[in-house]
Amino acid sequence: MQAAQMESVEEPPSMLWGLDPIFSTFAKLYVRDILQMTESIQVPDVYFYNSHPIFQVDVLGTVVYKRERDSFFCYGVDDGTGVINCLCWKKDLLKEKGDPTKSGAKHSDGAQGSFDPVAELEKLRQAQKNRCHLDIGDLLRVRGPVKTYRQQREITAHVYYKVNDPVMAVQIAWMMEVPQLYRQCYDKPILQQPDEMGDSSFTLLSKATNVIKDFVKQKMASKVRPYDVMDLLHPLFPVHSQTASEDQRPVAGPSSFQRLRQLVQETLQVLQDEGILYRKVRSQDEVYHVTAEDTDLLIAVKDIIREDSKREHFAEKGCHVLHILTAVRHSYSLNVTKAALEVILRKLECNSEIVSTRDNYYTAF
Rank of each mutant, 00 (worst) to 15 (best):
A119D: 12
Y149M: 09
F115N: 05
L140Y: 01
A119S: 11
C88P: 06
D135R: 06
D116L: 10
H133I: 01
E96P: 00
G137F: 04
A119F: 09
Q126C: 02
R125N: 03
S103N: 12
K147D: 02
V142F: 08
I136L: 00
T148C: 11
D135W: 07
W89E: 15
I84M: 09
K106L: 14
S114P: 00
Y149G: 03
Q151S: 11
E96C: 01
N85V: 05
N85P: 00
T148D: 06
A119Y: 08
K91W: 03
Q112G: 05
S114H: 08
C86M: 09
S114L: 11
K97T: 10
K97I: 05
D78H: 06
K123Y: 08
G104S: 13
V83Q: 09
K102G: 05
W89C: 10
K95A: 04
V142I: 11
D116G: 05
K95W: 00
K91L: 07
Q151D: 13
N85M: 09
K147A: 01
N85D: 12
N85W: 10
I136A: 00
A119P: 01
E96L: 02
L140N: 02
R141T: 04
A105H: 14
C86A: 15
V118K: 14
F115H: 09
D78W: 08
L93N: 14
Q151V: 06
D99P: 00
G110A: 14
K95I: 10
A127V: 02
D92W: 07
K91Q: 08
H107A: 14
D99V: 01
W89M: 15
L140G: 02
N130E: 12
L140M: 06
D135P: 03
N85A: 05
T101P: 01
G137V: 02
L134W: 02
L121A: 15
D99S: 03
L134Y: 02
T81V: 07
G104T: 13
L87K: 10
P100L: 15
C86W: 11
R131L: 13
G98T: 07
K95C: 04
A119N: 11
P117L: 07
D135V: 04
V83W: 01
A111C: 05
L124V: 10
K102D: 13
D138S: 13
H133K: 01
A119E: 14
H133M: 00
K102H: 10
R141K: 08
P100T: 12
D116P: 05
D92A: 06
E122K: 12
S114I: 07
I84F: 08
K106F: 13
A105K: 14
D138A: 07
G98N: 10
G144P: 07
N130M: 03
K123Q: 11
L87A: 10
